[in-house]
Design a protein around this nucleic acid. Structure first.
Lengths: 350, 350
DNA sequence: CTGAAAGCGCTAACAG
DNA sequence: CTGTTAGCGCTTTCAG
């Protein structure tokens, strides 16, 4: 690429150190008043085309960039939103952020990302700072998909994403874990699997319960029992995936599919299946949950899994927020549907 | 028509829904002038304690929150910085963001996180928006540790983190990959390993070259040859880790340690080592690179690895930026040292 | 069509 | 100590 900012109109003028000039400078250079310059730059109709051109040219020559803070002072809108997360690794926040960026358009709205790191006091601090910066709205992303305390009445609209608020008067957007569990098992059933087991994480997580419920639902609908006699709750780790698989295999060696409650667990499952010389997917199909690329794509074989559509969640959060900024916000809990990502760890039986 | 603000009969009105009040409201409630209210709230010395108390109480009663945009208009400082990244997964950006948050203090400075997703145009857009929001500084985080195009002359200080700028006049902060490679091999040598091989990623990455160079350096210093006859360059994936390990084992079955250029690759290495019934670390020690928790902690056994200290990098970037905001920025490339994280995949040889 | 004037909410000299 | 007076950079009536 060429060096320096691209300046289409400015032929004769030497390029300057970009950007500290004000509307007054532009007006002066163009030989018009500040008011006219403002109108010209904002595409207001009542400006002669010729004048507008002069102003635009002046603005370009000076690399003029409008001061959004001043604009915000007047319009009472900062063009910023806050994304307040407690999710250390950014595992959920990042996709949500990207979705929000998409929906807002990078020119219109910028987002402040703040990580409270699970610390309540830090969250209060960030909240104060954000409000003080006059964000137009807030997206709150929790660390786990269980209800979290409401922030209460705030002067800006708030959307709870991933973790719902514990106050039903707030608007929350969450992923559909029950639907995800159902989808996973449905996929297995369609592939002719009949002896399906379920290994999942910490039972204190609503997500673990919900995914299991969805799985059980779908099984029941098909008149199929759950293989392995129980849902294997444990921890969200590969180690648990390995341990549970060993126990499961002892209890019920004839299983032909395992639905893992997370991709991490699925990796542990695969590990032990390989040790036991059970072919995946020929003998046992494995499906994960999360579509965490680094884990799922690299697995041997690559992992079929459920994607929670977090980008879409982020996009929707942004849209709802946008609508709420000049209107009123809904309430309750809205659910985003999951999506099946087919890779090689599942295949039709025979 | 007179458009002046409507005078609300705001004598003893109940508290309002948090936060839309202005300094004028506070002053009125406290029965002082706006200027005095401002001074009282900003801890300026020339205010009687009693008056200050009155003002503070009024501010609290109204949940007053100062409008940072207005403040910024005056002080010419927004109290915000932009973090411009191209790093899809936030793998590098997030630790850097956290370090920066730490250093700035959440009350003082908030950070805009923008992801350009490797798209040059999107980057320009974000840059414009950020400048327009009058950020006090910019941290630019690249997707890979190789030089990236400079943003050129900007009206605010810029720090390039992780990926250095291609312009030596800019200030860049990078991790020390040569030192990391040296550290990894040093650790292996101290554990009595003598037949050390190196499997790493895409040779077009400076990081791959640097880590290899560090490893080779340390080996040479010890008078040791590189096991496996060559550095095994390939891809940053588990699959390559597996493939390379198989070839390596064929070529040189007697190795007692493998230095993997990333944790992903290390996972592949471990996988094949297990298949070949080689005990880790008893027979072969394995060390990774990145300390990517999800991969390293969950490995079997948990992976000893090199941490690039990205939080520290973020913290340092923030400090440098802070200093630069009222001063001048240095230039050139500054390097952050790596850190060894010992887990169970390495151990002294007998 | 264009410009003068009045602020948005706040801070910073100055006077009282 | 406290209030008055100017703005920060921009938009927006409302006259010319």
């Amino acid at each position: 690429m060429s060096r320096g900012p691209i300046e289409p109109g400015s032929s004769a003028d030497g390029p300057r150190p970009a950007g500290r000039s004000t509307l007054r400078d532009v007006a002066k250079l163009a030989g018009v008043s500040i008011a006219t310059a403002s109108k010209a730059l904002n595409n207001q109709p009542q400006v002669r085309a010729e004048t507008r051109a002069k102003v635009i040219q002046a603005a370009e020559a000076l690399s003029f960039s409008p001061n959004t803070l001043a604009q915000g002072l007047i319009t009472q809108r900062s063009g910023t939103v806050g994304l307040l997360t407690s999710d250390l690794e950014g595992r959920f926040s990042i996709p949500i952020l990207m979705g929000a960026e998409d929906a807002f358009g990078s020119d219109q709205t910028s987002v402040f990302l703040c990580d409270a790191r699970g610390d309540n006091l830090r969250e209060r601090h960030h909240l104060r700072a954000l409000l003080s910066r006059r964000v137009d709205g807030l997206i709150v992303v929790g660390a786990r998909p269980d209800a979290r305390p409401s922030l209460g009445e705030l002067p800006v609209p708030v959307i709870y994403a991933y973790s719902p608020s514990d106050n039903p008067a707030d608007l929350s957007l969450v992923t559909d874990n029950v639907g995800g569990g159902r989808l996973a098992v449905d996929h297995l059933i369609r592939h002719g699997r009949r002896r399906i087991a379920h290994i999942t994480g910490d039972p204190s997580y609503g997500a673990a319960q919900d995914r299991a419920r969805g799985a059980l639902d779908r099984l029941a609908q098909e008149g199929l029992p759950l293989a392995g006699d129980q849902v294997w709750f444990g921890a969200w780790s590969e180690a648990w995936g390995r341990g549970a698989t060993r126990m499961l295999l002892q209890r019920d060696p004839g299983i032909d599919a395992i639905f893992a409650g997370s991709d991490e667990i699925a990796r542990g499952v695969l590990d032990v299946l390989h040790q036991e010389k059970l072919a995946v997917p020929a003998q046992v199909a494995v499906i994960g949950f999360d579509n965490w690329n680094i884990l799922a794509v690299n697995a041997r074989p690559p992992l079929t899994t459920i994607d929670m559509n977090l980008e879409e969640l982020g996009r929707l959060a942004a849209q709802r927020l946008f609508a709420a900024i000049d209107g009123t916000l809904g309430s309750g809990i809205e659910t985003i549907g999951p999506r099946l990502i087919t890779r090689e760890s599942t295949a039709p039986l025979d």
